Simulated assay, not measured.
Amino acid sequence: MARRLGYAIQNVVFRALLGAMRLLPIETASAAGGWLFRLVGPRLPADRIARSNLARAFPEASQAEIDRIVQEVWDNLGRGAAEYAHLDRIDTHDGNRVELIGEERLLAARDSKAPFIVFSAHMANWEMASLVAAQRGCKLANIYRRASNPGMDRMIQKVRAGFTAELLPKGRAGARGALKVMDEGRPLGLLIDQKFNEGAPIPFFGRPAMTATAPAELALRYRCRVLPVRLERLPGARFRVTVEAPLELPDSGDRKADVETLLHAMNARVEAWVRARPGQWFWVHRRWPKDD
C-alpha cells in the first residue's frame, strides 16, 4: 500500500513537472531541469555512487575535478529529464537543434533493406539517436529497462512511442523480440552501457564490467552493419549526433572469441566517448560489481 501511494505521488509530480516544462521554451526548460538536479542530486545516494565510480575510473583526478564532473552529471541528467517534454517538437533536419555528422552512413544502412544495429550509450540526451533515425525513415526497435514505477513507465513509453518502432523489455522477451526484428530486416537500437548480472566480463575503464552479449551475437549471426552513434550535449539545449563508421565484424571461425572481440570493440568505443565528455555520462549507476 505504501509503495502504491509513493508511486502515485511520483506520477503526479512527474506529470506536473513535464507539463510545466512543456510550457517553457526548450532552452529555459533544459536550464531549469539542470538547476533542479544540481540542487537535489548531491543529496541523493546516487551521488556517492557517481563519486566512487569516477575516483576509480580516473585515479589521477583531483577532488576538485571530480566535484566538477559530478556537477556536470547532475546538470546533464536534469536537462535530459526536462527535455522529455519537448522531444516531439525537436526537428533534427535543419541543424539548429541537432548537428548530425555521418548522416550518409545511417541512410546507407536504411536503404540497404537489411537489418542493422545502432548502438550508443547513456550520454547527453540519449533519445537523440532514436529521434534522428526516426526522422529519416528508419524507426528503431529499442530494448529498454522498464521503470520500477508502472505509471511512470507508461508515461515514458508514451513519449518514446512517437519516435521508436517498438520498445522491447530487457530480458528473454526482449531477446525474442530482437530476433524477430532482425528476421524482418528492421533496425535495432541499443544502449550498451548498462549494468548486467549476466553476459561477459568485458573491460570498461580497465575493470571487468558484465556486458550483454546479445548485440554482438545478433551482429555476427546476421552479419549486419553495427553503427556506433556518439551523442554530445552542446550549449543552449543543442546536440551533436555522430554516426561513426560501421564496426568491422570478426570472422575467426570461433564464435565465442568473435563475440568477445566485438564486445571489446564496442565497450572501447563507449569508453572513448565517456573519456572525452565525462560529465555527460550516467555515472550514477553501478556499472561495475561492488567488490571488483
Rank of each mutant, 00 (worst) to 15 (best):
I101D: 15
D47L: 12
R269L: 12
R277C: 13
L5E: 03
G279P: 12
A61G: 05
F14K: 03
G253Y: 12
I192R: 03
A237L: 07
D193N: 05
P25Y: 06
G151F: 05
V241M: 02
K158V: 10
L106N: 02
Y84K: 08
L18T: 05
G6A: 11
E271Y: 06
K290G: 15
W126N: 15
G78K: 06
S112D: 00
G41Q: 07
F163E: 00
G279Q: 10
A268N: 11
L23N: 04
P42I: 08
N96P: 01
E72A: 13
M128V: 02
P250K: 04
A57C: 15
G185I: 01
A265F: 01
R154I: 04
V241R: 02
R79C: 12
A64T: 15
L179K: 09
L262I: 11
I66H: 10
P278A: 05
D75K: 03
V13N: 05
L190H: 08
L191R: 04
A165Y: 09
P169L: 04
G137T: 00
G95R: 06
R230V: 05
A257K: 08
A32M: 14
E232A: 08
V243A: 01
V159M: 11
L168Q: 06
N267M: 14
R89N: 08
R110F: 00
G102R: 00
L190C: 05
N125Q: 13
H285M: 13
K139G: 14
P169W: 08
A20N: 02
R105I: 08
M155I: 13
R3T: 13
P45E: 11
W283H: 11
P208W: 06
T242P: 01
T28D: 12
